[in-house]
Amino acid sequence: MVRMSAAERRESIIRAASAEFARGGYHGTSTEAIAKRVGVSQPYLFRLFPGKKAIFLAAAERCVEDTIRMFAEASEGLEGEEALHAMANAYARAVTERPELLMMQMQMYLAVAAAEQEGDQEFGATVRAGWLRLWDTVHLALGVDVKETTAFMAHGMLINCLSAMGFPSGHRIWEGLDPSARFGGSAVSR
């Protein structure tokens, strides 16, 4: 049996934590569940991360970086409408192929709101910094004004919300999104 390095084990913990947090949220996910999913002990988790909060923030950072990478790869060498279509298509694929990515995004926002009500500013600072990097990636790729970038991001958030609520494909609620208007004809598969 080949032993994993600490870096490889850390990576497997972040992947497992992302899946667990996407499903259960920050407060609804135990470090025991994460350790079990990875196949390590809880004490081993805490050798690599100082606590649950650090694990969550690493998973949140990974979620943002994965989303940025998805948009950057989709729009590479493109601008304006072409970049918009490419990024929209990539996001539409993520809805069906990587729903945990979208759910982790939603859990990040909820965790920030809850933490800030409790006076913890670290969650918000980390998530907002990542979101700004995501915003800049989209804005630069689109090469449009702030309103167009806002519309693109708002459309994506609405998709997240409707997907999180479980609205099935073909439901009348999706008609109002008119993917061809904002997402350049890409059909959002739900």
Rank of each mutant, 00 (worst) to 15 (best):
M1Y: 08
M4W: 09
S5Y: 04
S5W: 07
A6E: 13
R9H: 04
R9C: 05
E11I: 06
E11N: 15
I14L: 10
I14S: 01
I14C: 06
R15G: 02
A16T: 03
A17G: 14
S18G: 15
S18L: 09
A22Y: 02
A22V: 06
G24K: 11
Y26E: 01
H27D: 14
G28L: 08
T29F: 02
A33W: 01
I34F: 03
A35G: 10
G39D: 10
G39E: 09
G39M: 08
S41G: 14
Q42L: 05
Q42Y: 04
P43G: 10
Y44E: 08
L48Y: 07
P50G: 15
G51E: 07
G51A: 14
K52S: 07
K53L: 03
K53D: 04
F56M: 01
L57Q: 00
L57I: 05
A58T: 05
A59H: 00
A60N: 04
E61N: 15
V64I: 15
E65C: 08
E65D: 15
D66S: 13
D66V: 03
D66A: 11
A72M: 10
E73V: 09
A74S: 12
A74T: 09
S75C: 08
E76P: 02
E76C: 12
G77R: 13
L78N: 01
L78I: 09
E79M: 11
E79C: 10
G80F: 12
E81Y: 12
E81H: 11
E82G: 10
E82Y: 07
L84G: 00
A86N: 04
M87Y: 03
A88D: 01
N89E: 11
N89T: 10
A90F: 06
A90S: 13
Y91Q: 02
R93E: 09
R93N: 11
A94W: 00
E97S: 14
E97L: 12
P99A: 12
L101R: 03
M103I: 05
M103R: 02
M104K: 00
M104N: 04
M106F: 08
M106W: 04
M106S: 14
Q107A: 13
M108C: 15
A111W: 00
A115R: 05
A115P: 07
E116C: 08
Q121C: 08
Q121G: 12
E122C: 12
F123L: 08
T126K: 07
V127Y: 00
V127H: 00
G130Q: 03
L132S: 13
R133N: 12
W135F: 13
T137S: 12
T137N: 11
H139K: 13
L140N: 13
A141Y: 01
A141M: 09
K147E: 06
K147F: 04
A151Y: 06
A151F: 06
M153R: 10
M153T: 09
I159G: 00
L162M: 13
L162E: 02
S163G: 09
A164G: 14
A164N: 10
A164M: 08
G166V: 07
G166E: 07
F167Q: 03
F167C: 06
P168Q: 11
P168Y: 08
S169W: 05
G170K: 11
W174M: 04
W174G: 01
E175H: 10
L177Y: 08
L177W: 06
L177H: 10
D178G: 11
R182S: 07
G184F: 01
S186K: 09
S186N: 15
V188I: 14
R190H: 12
